[in-house]
Amino acid sequence: MDDQVFIYDTYVATTRERLWDALTNPDTTEQFWSGNRLISDWAIGSPVRLLDGDMVRDEGEVLDFVPCQRMSFSWKPHFAIEFAAEQGTPIAFAESEAGHETRVGFAISEFGPQLRLTLTHDHFAPDSKLFPIISFGWPFYMASLKSLLESGAGLELPAGAKVGRGAN
């Protein structure tokens, strides 16, 4: 079976420092990530949590962290599983994905005077039903991040919206 890998490139007119801060500073993540705060001390092995208020939506551990260049962390997407349940996806879905850790990575490279931000999300369970869900979500949040850095405001996801079809 082929391993599923989600890759999405975004080109952003900003500096490495601002882009890095936007990804790692919870005060900034909440501006582009539907109000969610990404919390970690970013030491290798430390926990990473995506918080909506007090609720942990997703969590994992820091695997790699080179400031202004790249980072990766393991990722148990609790929220996506709840989302699938809300959408009426069968219970078998939650069972097959429960406890399975995927991996999320961000890498920054230069592209002329802009930056290329490459998101890679992989290590999915075989026959993962999570994959199409994250393929919907990431392009929206990467677009929102780009808008925040270039025009000062993130995008807003309307309540109940089903977004996207992803990239590959």
Binding site: A153, L155, V163
Partner: peptide, 11 residues
């Protein structure tokens, strides 16, 4: 080969 798909959101 598979299709290439890319979604972008624009304000």
């Amino acid at each position: 080969l598979s299709a290439f798909t890319y979604t972008v959101y624009i304000a």
